[in-house]
Design a protein around this nucleic acid. Structure first.
Length: 494
RNA sequence: GCGCUCUUCGUCUAGCCUGGUCCAGGACACCGCCCUUUCACGGCGGCGACAGGGGUUCAAAUCCCCUAGGGCGUACCA
């Protein structure tokens, strides 16, 4: 871990207000950024976007992207959540350079820093009980006053050995604390709005607002990009940086993502877990593209590959207002990436989705060719699997209505004619087309008459890729088998 | 309540800093037409916004003020 403590010199950055002689980090060079999720659930849309922005910035500036797991709340943190977050980041292609660091493994460091604050009179022990505090808060709220800690223990003359306590940070009550947010601009808070926050719980564990400062500083972070639900925490964190003698990094607070009712995005708005989008057949590049465009833009451009993003992304072009998550646009992007994706790669993916549907893909079919016939017709990989299952199925799931209409005694002639042609035709695009032309000549029918019955015979339903394509991908053997089956079915019908 | 902050089509946004080129551009969605062997793809077109009110100015989406609405925070959660 780099030693970054306290040697940061002059705040030459004009961006920064430097009222209290805080030491500001002063450049974007050697950029170090981080994503610091707390492992209390899966990686959600909002977290993924924050991670993505950090990743992009790190790559663009040839900096370092650090992953840190904020698991100081031992009660709510789980290993499953860590695994889920790691898996989601990997899926999205957000590779980190350092970490994951676990805060739960760094308690010694935090304890040391808290002791330092205690020793230097910048923090104090507070013996107020939780009940007392909530009561005071309620009273204050009722009287229309600020629900702040009243500082009872701040003035305590001596310690009370044996009595449980929390440690509070002694906030500077005078003046104000300001910072220049790279997204939101200058933000200033009157210090009287800040109360003495708890930095160590009764059980001895440190709290978020404290450890986040220690870690961000100790890990040498130059820029903090995080959700704007943290802007209110920033002034108190800045005071801690100062008290600990750390240089203050730059901040960029990313606006929240809202649901369609303009409320903070949550489960009741539908899927918010990144990984469930994979399960629903979304491609990671679609998710990345969607996420980055939510709150950021680059002229009129909509489509961005990861390399393009690394080149074009800019924190300056990130909007200041919250954005509504729009599943339709995500779907459209997914459709786009499926349409333009590499058939080979999509073919491999398709097999996985097929397997999830219980379809055996051990047939001698070229998955890439299968994909090519379905790319223009599928918005998701799940949809592609549904539409493409018929290629692999030995026993087709016939659409009843289609069968009653198109696989009847009077179609037998068509099936037989095509069957005969297929037996001898050259089985390539041209050969198949010729075979059909022959049939049309023989029977004197128009393609419209022949097409649907054959489509149903080969695919089981009335909606499928073009007949020539289907026949070609299926290959002679399967086509013949399916046509024979259709003829049998015709006999069975009246 | 208090604090911070935000406000251009239903949604994501361009434009705002450096007023005129904006009776506001793009994208998704929606609607219509065309293409078509099914289903799709695609092409073309349409609908649709400067939150409201004052001011400054020859001229305001762009500058100033007020109002309204939204989001976040106000935890021994992160």
């Amino acid at each position: 871990m780099p030693q970054t403590q306290a040697q940061n010199p002059a705040p030459t950055v004009p961006n920064h207000i430097d009222k209290y002689n805080f030491k500001w980090r002063n450049s974007m060079s050697d950029m170090r950024v981080r994503f610091a999720p707390s492992p209390t659930g899966y990686l959600h849309i909002g977290g993924a976007r924050t991670a993505l922005f950090n990743y992009l910035l790190a790559r663009q500036n040839k900096g370092t992207f650090i992953l840190r797991i904020e698991d100081t709340d031992v009660e709510r943190s789980t290993q499953e959540s860590v695994d889920a977050i790691l898996a989601a980041m990997e899926w999205l292609g957000l590779e980190y350079d350092e970490g994951p660091y676990y805060q739960s493994e760094r308690f010694d460091l935090y304890r040391e820093k808290i002791q330092f604050l205690l020793d230097s009179g910048k923090a104090y022990k507070c013996y107020c009980t939780e009940e007392e505090l909530t009561q005071k808060r309620e009273v204050a709220l009722q009287q229309g006053a600020k629900p702040q800690y009243d500082g009872t223990c701040r003035k305590l003359e001596q310690e009370r050995p044996g009595q449980p306590y929390v440690v509070r940070f002694k906030t500077n009550p005078a003046g104000n604390t300001a910072f220049n947010d790279l997204i939101k601009g200058n933000i200033s808070f009157d210090n009287c709005e800040l109360d003495d926050m708890i930095i160590q719980r009764t059980d001895g564990t440190p709290t978020y607002n404290f450890v986040v400062v220690v870690d961000d500083a100790e890990m040498g972070l130059t820029l903090i990009v995080r959700g704007d639900d943290h802007v209110n925490n920033t002034p108190r964190q800045i005071q801690i940086y100062a008290a600990l003698g750390y240089a203050v990094p730059q901040f960029a607070h990313v606006p929240m993502i809202l649901g369609d009712d303009k409320k903070r995005l949550s489960k009741r708005h539908g899927a918010t877990s990144v990984m469930t989008y994979r399960d629903m057949g979304y491609l990671p590049e679609a998710m990345v593209n969607y996420l980055v465009r939510l709150g950021w833009s680059y002229g009129d451009e909509e489509i961005f590959s990861m390399p393009e993003l690394i080149e074009k992304f800019s924190i300056k072009s990130v909007g200041r207002s919250a954005g509504v998550f729009n599943p339709d646009k995500l779907l459209w992007l997914n459709e786009h990436y499926i349409k333009t994706g590499d058939p080979q790669r999509l073919g491999a993916l398709l097999q996985d989705y097929l397997h999830s549907d219980g379809v055996d893909t051990n047939a001698d079919l070229d998955a890439a060719e299968v994909v090519k016939t379905l790319q223009d017709r599928s918005k998701t990989m799940v949809e592609m699997a549904q539409k493409g299952a018929f290629y692999y199925l030995d026993e087709l799931n016939y659409d009843q209505a289609a069968v009653e209409k198109f696989i009847t005694a009077e179609q037998t002639e068509i099936f037989s004619a095509v069957l005969e042609q297929f037996k001898t035709a050259t089985f390539d695009a041209e050969g198949i087309e010729t075979a059909f032309k022959q049939v049309l000549e023989q029977t004197g029918l128009k393609f419209g008459k022949v097409g649907q019955p054959i489509r149903v015979a080969l695919s089981g339903g009335t909606s499928a890729p073009g007949i020539y394509e289907v026949a070609l991908v299926l290959g002679r053997e399967r086509c013949i088998k399916r046509l024979q089956r259709a003829i049998e079915m015709c006999r069975g019908s009246k």
